[in-house]
Design a protein around this nucleic acid. Structure first.
Lengths: 208, 208
DNA sequence: GCGGTCAGTGAACACTCGTACTCCGAACGG
DNA sequence: CCGTTCGGAGTACGAGTGTTCACTGACCGC
């Protein structure tokens, strides 16, 4: 009897849940999850502390939910960007631009990911790692379709995919630190780095 | 009258200071700095809470001190590794091995750095960023001496140095997550990634 | 050796925290 | 329409927090 997932009741519950997530995200802009108090969140969300338990067991569980909210909706996006046509340079530019625009649009979400990727809350770290691994696999899959990947082993494609994903995270983090003012410079360097990796990729099979 | 910095008194003070740092590092293995309590540290160090203030203003200040303890002693090390002779492949292996051995020897220190690099405590983030930038500059300086860097601009050398440093951090973090059991695999992938970057470097000036 | 310096103590302050209760009332299924 | 479900409110508890204050006693330079 899990009842219908629709109805006024369910809607209101999701509403409060979302306001908890939103409030948490605001608070997490200046602190990390492990120092985030349950009461602090409920206070900012406008509900009583006890109401929190109707939605999450822990602040850790809330963190995991935030991870899925942030990264869950991004799957397929990178693959789509890579699948578009254009020469190497164009696609590289496009990738960096997509990252920059997403980070600029929802800085708090990405700050949270960067902060908790190696943070003090185990379950959240695990959730982020799982999502990033999925990204790496998706990128590897997209790369395989390209002519430039002829002769590449699956393992090497995954290595390259992980490299791209890690750089995506680094770039996002750098953009957050630099702020809108330093965005151009960060983008410049990120593009250069990707170009270097791209060149390495082209000549990967020349040796060894 | 700042008196002589020597003497039994100064020695004892440094002793307690160090025990505070050590205690904090142990506690930070399973949590992040922003959730670390002042009382918690003093309890583990075997002193009263008030004694803490004789050494640090904040737990944030303690964090900054930990950063310098961890990274301050590493300067020159990478440059030294890069300065050793050998072909590209050998030096690449050596670099990865040095990282792995250091991480294996003092895991807590490196875990702290990885965790707080994007953590919730501003001053600590700044301190880490400053140290890593210094590393990047040192690496760039070492790279400039090599024949393979002929024709490289200072900016690109710095870009490459930053790339190496970022990968050093990523590798260290991956080693910590993997534990001793997964070390071989992490080292394998790290070596591959560095080789790819190295190949990109060789052909960097071929185009545009 | 004598007086000042100062690292560390111990008690007390005013908080905030997570969690366990009981209870209310609106939306729910039959 | 009626009994049930359940999201949320309210209260209370014990534990832990950062910081302050006056104090002690060993080391210091003179």
């Amino acid at each position: 009897m899990s009842h219908t997932p629709t109805g006024v009741r369910r809607t209101q519950k999701l509403r409060t849940r979302q306001s908890l997530l939103d409030a948490a995200l605001v608070l997490l802009e200046h602190q990390s999850l492990s120092s985030l108090g349950l009461r602090e969140v409920t206070r900012a969300a406008g509900v009583t502390p006890t109401a929190f338990y109707r939605h999450f067991e822990d602040t850790a569980a809330l963190g995991v939910a935030l991870v899925e909210e942030t990264l869950g909706s991004l799957h397929g996006l990178i693959a789509a960007v890579l699948a578009e046509t254009g020469d190497s340079e164009e696609r590289l530019d496009r990738s960096v631009r997509v990252i920059a625009s997403h980070v600029g649009a929802q800085p708090a979400h990405f700050r949270f990911i960067a902060r908790e990727q190696h943070g003090g809350v185990g379950p959240v770290r695990v959730a982020i790692a799982a999502q990033l691994r999925r990204f790496a696999e998706e990128v590897a899959l997209a790369l395989r379709e390209e002519p430039a990947s002829a002769g590449w082993s699956t393992e090497d494609l995954l290595m390259l995919g992980g490299l791209y994903v890690d750089h995506m995270v680094i770039t996002a983090s750098a953009l957050l630190e630099a702020g809108p003012a330093g965005e151009r410079e960060v983008v410049r360097v990120a593009r250069r780095r990707l170009r270097l990796v791209s060149i390495g990729r082209e000549h990967w099979l020349d040796e060894g």
